[in-house]
Each structure stands twice: as C-alpha cells, then as structure tokens.
C-alpha cells in the first residue's frame, strides 16, 4: 500500500504528496526523538510522530522513510512544508493519536 492509498482509504490529509504515490509502506515506526528515528527507523517505514519541525523533514529524507504521518492534529509550518515539498517527502496529517494510526497501518500491512 502506498502512503497516498492509505490516506485516501482512512481520510488523512495529504499535506505534501512527495513520492507518496510511488513508494510502498514497508513497515511502521513511531517515535518523537529524532535521533532515535535516525538510528532505528527502517527504509520505507511510515514514520509516525507529533514532532512537526523542519528537522523532522531532514530525518525523513536521510532515514529514507516512505512517509511522515503527523498525528494528534499537528501541522507543519509553511517553511517546513516548503522543505518537504522541495525534497519530495510525503507528509500526511491525522487528527488521531499515534497508536490509532499505527493500528490501522498494522492491519493494512498484515501485522495483526
């Protein structure tokens, strides 16, 4: 399932489409400590967080995740959003808590 397909199925807002229609979600990683994400998220993971600053985008690019999903209604500010678009990072927004979004992804990926 691609990030855009996930967004369409569950009604998430596509804040930056990036490569979200061409990459497959390979796994799920939830964390707000960006250094931990750098070291532990796997390539193609969906990265779920409430940390919506410009460094979130940098970490998404360098860790090569398939998308960032900002949970709990967190939004990106305009400069960060511009950076995400410029770097082709797919950013989705959800009003739900991280766990709820992760649970939907886990079901879609056949983990539960």
């Amino acid at each position: 399932m691609t990030p855009i397909e996930f967004a369409e199925k569950y009604g998430l807002t596509v804040s930056s489409p990036g490569e979200g229609d061409s990459r497959e979600i390979g796994g799920v990683y939830c964390c707000d400590l960006l250094s931990m994400v750098m070291g532990r998220a796997s390539e193609n993971d969906a990265f779920l967080t409430v940390m919506g600053n410009v460094n979130t985008v940098a970490v998404a690019v360098l860790a090569d995740v398939s998308c960032v999903i900002l949970c709990e209604g967190i939004q990106l500010d305009e400069p960060t959003l511009e950076k995400a678009r410029a770097q082709d990072v797919c950013v989705l927004l959800s009003p739900e808590p991280t766990f709820q979004v992760a649970l939907k992804l886990a079901r879609e990926l056949g983990m539960v």
Partner: peptide, 16 residues
C-alpha cells in the same frame, strides 16, 4: 524540545 539531545548521536555514528 526539537527532538534531539537524547544521547543517541555518537552511538548512532558508531553503529552506522
């Protein structure tokens, strides 16, 4: 508060 300073930087550099 920006998501850093967790004491993971140098260990990550060593690991990778």
């Amino acid at each position: 508060s920006l998501g850093f300073g967790a004491g993971m930087g140098l260990p990550n550099m060593k690991k990778y």
